[in-house]
Computed example of a mutant assay.
Amino acid sequence: MSHLAPELTTERLRLRGYARDDFDWFDTTWQSEAVNRYIGGKPRTRAENWPRFLLNFGQWELFGYGYWLIEERKSGTRVGIAGLMHAMRDIAAIDAYPEAGWVLAETAAGKGYGTEAMRAILAWADATLDAPQTGCIIDPGNAASVNVAGKLGYRSTGMATYQDGEIETFARPRGGVPIAS
């Protein structure tokens, strides 16, 4: 079990650090076409997923924040990942701040888990980090994630080019007020 990420809990979820035995679930999730529809557009191979998995440990070590693995509290079922990272995407609107992100397994989509997990994470970030804001990027076609971002208090800051495509950038000031569900 990772000791770098603090455990967070919500009414329905447990957010915890990654452990080595989470990789098979992580790999299966990132090989899903539905999961990747708005994140790169194509499923990733096991060889591509291993460095992405390791990145989660390194973020915590280097920056004091990173991603959590999301589990349902009652069943212990892994349902997604969410957190903050320093991605160095060369996008001026977000590169100076922690970047928020959330990814849910196909079976967990549409249940409000992304919003619930990110509310806990942003409350932790507001209390713990010295960042004046957080940012995120979302494919403009991903209406579900745009909706989640709005509920979390993120507001659009415009469009940017990333990996030969256009993405929308968002910002949320520290202590930003989320919108009721």
Rank of each mutant, 00 (worst) to 15 (best):
L4I: 07
A5K: 07
E7M: 12
E7L: 09
L8S: 00
T9D: 11
T9I: 09
E11V: 08
R12D: 00
L13P: 02
R14S: 03
A19I: 03
D21G: 05
D21E: 15
D21W: 12
W25T: 13
T28I: 04
S32M: 12
E33D: 09
V35H: 04
R37E: 14
Y38D: 00
Y38G: 00
K42Y: 02
R44C: 01
R46C: 03
A47R: 09
E48P: 01
E48G: 07
N49A: 12
N49M: 10
L54V: 12
G58Q: 05
G58T: 11
W60M: 03
E61I: 06
G64Y: 02
Y65D: 03
G66D: 02
L69Q: 11
S75L: 08
T77L: 11
R78M: 12
G80W: 03
G83R: 00
M85E: 11
I91G: 05
A93K: 14
D95H: 09
P98N: 07
E99Y: 00
A100N: 06
A100I: 05
W102N: 02
V103N: 02
L104D: 02
L104N: 01
L104C: 10
G110V: 07
G112A: 07
G112S: 01
Y113N: 02
M118H: 01
R119G: 00
A120F: 01
I121N: 04
L122N: 04
W124V: 03
A125M: 02
A127F: 11
L129I: 00
A131D: 13
I137G: 05
N142L: 06
N142R: 08
A143I: 12
S145P: 08
S145A: 14
A149G: 08
A149C: 08
R155T: 15
T161F: 10
Q163H: 12
D164T: 09
D164Q: 15
E168T: 13
T169Q: 06
G175F: 03
G175L: 00
G176M: 10
I179F: 10
A180P: 04
